[in-house]
């Protein structure tokens, strides 16, 4: 009996640690996003290269989470909400890793941009990154609290980043039409906007997983 209780306790602890690992990975991605945009804002090539290098840690973290989830599945044979939690963790870790990849892409583009002459500022970028970071935080809060309402609210905010990406698209197109010498730089900026928009989509995926975790049913939140 006592042994059984101990095993149960260890299992609960492992589940809690898995949740903590997801939050840790979320923090790593948040910092990568913030630093990639900061590098862009300050034309800081060193910082951009650092973000690219640090992406390997995010990838390693994802592997660690996946490994932990598989071990729990194999050794504890969880059921019901525990099973949903573990499978959700795997998916969320994958989405977080993709977000890290987008931060890396932004940093690589930043390195290229820094080799070019400065161009006009893009006011939409700070708003896009702020929206992505706020939503990431909200989605992870919803994950820890198993809060479907919060996840739904977070998914609904994706439209803002999409709209901002469209604005950047129009702006860059106008810039290129006006001055042909800006084509290369404007294209880089368009890619950056696209990367941020994809980050927003991955956050929506996280929200879908939280909905599944909380309700036990799959929800397609792309259209909300």
């Amino acid at each position: 009996m006592a042994l059984e209780t101990e095993i149960r306790k260890a299992y609960r602890l492992q589940l809690a640690q898995l949740g903590d690992e997801v939050l840790t990975m979320g923090s790593m991605v948040d910092k990568a996003l913030e630093r990639s945009m900061d590098a862009l804002a300050r034309r800081d090539v060193d910082l951009a290269r650092q973000v690219v290098a640090d992406d390997s840690f995010i990838n390693a973290k994802r592997m660690g989470i996946e490994e932990g989830a598989v071990i729990l599945l194999a050794t504890q044979q969880p059921m019901a909400s525990d099973l949903r939690f573990i499978t959700s963790v795997e998916h969320i870790a994958t989405d977080l890793e993709r977000m890290g990849d987008h931060a890396r892409s932004i940093s690589r583009l930043c390195v290229k941009l820094c080799a070019e002459p400065p161009m006009r500022t893009v006011n939409e970028f700070p708003r896009m990154i702020a929206s992505c970071r706020e939503r990431l935080r909200l989605a992870l809060d919803a994950f820890i609290e198993r809060d479907a309402e919060k996840a739904l609210a977070c998914a609904r905010q994706d439209v803002e980043v999409d709209q901002l990406q469209d604005d950047v698209y129009d702006l860059m197109l106008a810039t290129m039409e006006k001055d042909g010498s800006t084509v290369v730089r404007a294209t880089y900026l368009l890619w950056i906007a696209h990367n941020l928009e994809r980050v927003g989509d991955h956050i929506t995926n996280v929200c879908e997983r939280v909905m599944y975790l909380a309700k036990g049913r799959r929800h397609e939140l792309d259209e909300v």
């Binding site: 260890a10 492992q14 640690q17 840790t24 660690g64 932990g68 729990l72 050794t75």
Partner: peptide, 12 residues
């Protein structure tokens, strides 16, 4: 911390 979770470089 060696419960199989967080086997990456940054353990919990």
């Amino acid at each position: 911390s060696d419960l199989g979770v967080g086997a990456s470089r940054r353990p919990v």
